[in-house]
Amino acid sequence: MAESHAIEGSKLTRQFGGFFALKGVDLAVKRGEIRGLIGPNGAGKSTLIDVLSGRAEHRSGTVRMFGTDISAMTAQQRRHAGLARSFQRTNIFPDLTVIDQLDIASRAAEMPNIDEIMAELNLTALAFRRAANISYGDQRRLDLALALIGRPKILLLDEPAAGLSIGESLELAHILKDLAARWGVTVLLVEHDMEVVFSICDRITVLHLGAILAEGTPDQIRGVPEVVTAYLGSSV
C-alpha cells in the first residue's frame, strides 16, 4: 500500500462569483517535506492555504491529512488534529501580550511548549510586551511561534518573510528548516522571497491563475522556461 501523504488536496476548486481562484488543483506533500508554493500575485496561493487549513470553504474536491479526509472538519478541528498555519498579516491581536497569544494557541496543543517555542524564536525577553509594541521582525517570529505551538504535524506558512530584510529572511528560513528537520514537521511554504524558497524547499509547486503550472525540485523549477518567463525572471 502506498504511503499516504501528510497533506493532500485533490481537485480543489474555489470560486468568487464568476472568478475561479482555484481550478481543480491537485497537491500532495510528503511527510517531512518542505514544499514551496510560488506564483505571481492572484495565483491562488493564499486561497489554497485557506482551503487546506479550513479557513475557507472549497466548492469541490477533497482535503486529506495522512490519508484521512478532513474536508468536513472546521479550522479549529484541523488545528487540534495537528494542522497549523500562519497568516500573511502580522499583529492580529495587537492588544495581547506575546505570552497571552502563545497561551491561546496552546489550547490546541496536547503538550503546550510555550517556553521552548519562545526560546527557539528568541521571544523570551518579549514575553510580557504587547504585540503592538514589538518590532515588525519580532511580530513575524511571533506569528511563526503561534503556528508552532504544540509541535504541529503540518505547518502552512503564508509569506512568513514578507517585509523582512534579507538578513532577517534568511535567519527565519534557517530557523524554519532546522525546526522542521528536528521536529519532523511537514511544511507548505508560500513565499515571494525566492532566496528563502530555493534555499530551504525540497520541492516547489508553481501556481498560476488558479492552476498548477509546474512542480519539481528547485533545480527542475529553475529549468522550466514558462516559470522563468512568467515569474522568476533572472532572480534565481
Binding site: Q76, F93, D95, A109
Partner: peptide, 11 residues
C-alpha cells in the same frame, strides 16, 4: 480582535 483566527488557534 479576530474571531476566526482565534478559532484557528484552537479556541
Amino acid at each position: 480582535a479576530d474571531p476566526l483566527t482565534t478559532a484557528m488557534q484552537g479556541v
